[in-house]
Amino acid sequence: MAVIGDDLALYQILLSNVPHTRLVEDKGGQNWISREKDKFKFPGGGTQFIHGANEYLDQISQMVPEIAFGNRTRVALDVGCGVASFGAFLLSRSVITMSIAPKDVHENQIQFALERGVPAMVVAFATHRLPYPSQAFDLIHCSRCRINWTRDDGILLLEVNRLLRAGGYFVWAAQPVYKHEEAQQAAWKGMS
């Protein structure tokens, strides 16, 4: 269960509940997760959220003011969620977020999300429809998830379209540092 102090950056869980310390070594420098004695702490950072998830959410709100987290946007799906910082910080803005990881190798990250009280699951996104009804989400988010959305004639985008409510938002973000990678350029061109 998440423990929230005065500052939302104090999300924490007990190490004994999820004894997977490797993620701290692999992602600690990206501000996803840190270890302090017998606790893991989740400061809200991440590969895409270099200044924290709250600032990232503020940037989205500034770019698209009508997104209105907690009012117009109340139910979200976060694809490629990592340790679910996006979902945890949306919760503080009255948005329920289902966080999904598209690969089994992310099981430990999903366990961190669940332990924090953020709904999460591993799901085979590319081969099956997601187990949600049509028009279930106001927002679908994918931040540096490296999913090829346009593969197989855009079948994954068709699934996004099925899941989004009318007037909903699909937020797909990638760090500019990857813009020089050939695969990322092809993905951007395909999406455009």
Rank of each mutant, 00 (worst) to 15 (best):
W149S: 02
M98H: 15
Q135S: 11
D104W: 13
T97W: 04
P133E: 15
S85W: 10
T150Q: 10
R93T: 00
A126K: 12
M98V: 10
A124N: 15
F112H: 05
T150A: 06
N148L: 03
V83A: 02
M121E: 14
H141V: 00
Q109N: 06
R165T: 02
A126V: 01
C145G: 13
L164C: 08
F112I: 00
I96S: 11
P131C: 04
S143Q: 11
A166L: 09
A84V: 02
W172C: 05
G87C: 09
A124W: 15
V160F: 06
R165A: 00
H128E: 08
Y169G: 03
S85D: 08
D152F: 02
H106P: 04
C142I: 01
W149P: 03
R162V: 01
A124L: 05
L157A: 02
F89H: 05
E107I: 02
V105C: 07
A136S: 14
E107G: 06
V160W: 11
G154C: 07
F86E: 04
I100G: 13
E159M: 05
V105G: 10
W172T: 01
L163I: 05
M121K: 14
I110W: 11
T127D: 09
I147T: 12
W172S: 04
V123R: 11
D153S: 13
L156V: 06
E115P: 06
L157Y: 04
Y132S: 08
I110M: 11
P102V: 00
H128A: 00
F170D: 06
A88V: 02
F170E: 06
W172K: 04
L91N: 15
D152M: 01
R144L: 07
L156T: 07
A88H: 14
H128S: 03
E107C: 00
M98I: 14
N148R: 11
R162T: 01
S99T: 07
H106C: 06
V123D: 11
S94K: 10
R144V: 01
D104I: 09
A84G: 12
T127Q: 12
Q135N: 12
R129L: 06
H141P: 07
R165P: 01
L164P: 12
V118F: 07
Q111Y: 04
V83W: 07
Q135R: 15
A101V: 01
V160I: 04
I100N: 10
S85Q: 14
Y132E: 06
L91V: 01
L158I: 00
E159H: 11
P131E: 10
N161E: 08
R165F: 04
V95N: 10
S99K: 12
H141Q: 12
